[in-house]
Design a protein around this nucleic acid. Structure first.
Length: 262
DNA sequence: ATGCCGTGGAAACCACGA
């Protein structure tokens, strides 16, 4: 049975990060990759550099901030949407969805939400609500679906190096953790936590205070698998060493492996 | 433990991130 490897990586600037991104892609050889925080306008995406190492891409760029992309070794990427439904006034590039290798891939960059409370936190909760509504539609469609990316949520205390100092933060406040739990309860499987129920696993380490050296990390990049895909999940992990490279993003790449019959 | 660092863009500082 063939294995498919899918990864997510918040690059924090796709052009500034290009050497690191290319090095990691050649090392890890994922079949499908979700990128967040491109921080590049639509016309400045490094399409050719990625094609040169065998990755086709669709992306939704934006000047300065946000921006999401889906890469695939197979040419067959069919874009389904590039906004989350529910708010025509939302200008942030935070969602792109495509049909790739028989799987619906939703690549997302959920708002940070700080400072909380405040308008940014309200935007985060509203975005979460729209995501949850769309996720319910995807579950009902009975398709193999992955909702992948930077959720900006630590779901439990096991996902934070020092939970007591994060209780008021927009990434860990009860409203946000409840929203994540409510989403998962639709029937989604949190891949990393399901395969590693007890382990402290982080996907992000701040640039300052030697956070990576102290392993003062957060688990905020997640894979949610629809019911049809959950039994196919075989492996999940974090390429933590990439965070230690020169000119690294503050996130590390996260990946899963699925066994697909056919 | 308060953006202390890092990125991008516009104008040599500012917004934003988590």
């Amino acid at each position: 049975m063939p294995t498919i490897k899918i990864a997510t990586y918040n690059v924090n600037g796709v052009n500034g990060r290009l050497p690191v991104l290319l090095r990691w892609l050649e090392e890890a050889q994922p079949d499908i990759v979700c990128l967040q925080e491109l921080k590049a306008p639509q016309e400045k995406f490094p399409e050719q550099a990625l094609l040169d190492i065998g990755y086709h891409a669709i992306w939704h760029g934006q000047k300065s901030w946000n921006g999401v992309a889906i890469l695939s070794r197979s040419k067959d990427i069919r874009e389904l949407r590039r906004t989350l439904p529910g708010d025509d006034e939302d200008t942030h590039s935070r969602y792109i969805e495509a049909f790739v290798n028989g799987i619906v891939i939703g690549c997302l960059y959920l708002p940070n939400g700080n400072p909380a409370p405040g308008p940014k936190f309200d935007y985060k909760l509203a975005w979460f609500k729209r995501l949850t509504a769309h996720a319910a539609d995807l579950i009902e469609a009975d398709m193999p679906v992955l909702l992948v990316g930077d959720y900006n949520v630590m779901p439990t205390e096991l996902d934070v190096y020092k939970p007591e100092s994060w209780t008021e933060d927009a990434l860990f406040r009860p409203e946000v953790r409840t929203a994540f739990m409510k989403l998962v309860k639709q029937g989604w499987t949190d891949a990393i936590r399901t395969l590693h129920p007890e382990e402290r696993i982080y996907t992000f380490w701040d640039y300052f205070r030697n956070a990576y050296g102290r392993n003062a990390g957060l688990r905020i990049d997640h894979f949610l698998l629809s019911p049809e895909l959950a039994p196919k999940l075989k492996k999940a992990g974090v390429d933590k060493h990439v965070r230690g490279w020169e000119k690294s993003s503050d996130h590390a790449p996260v990946w899963i492996e699925l066994k697909i019959s056919k």
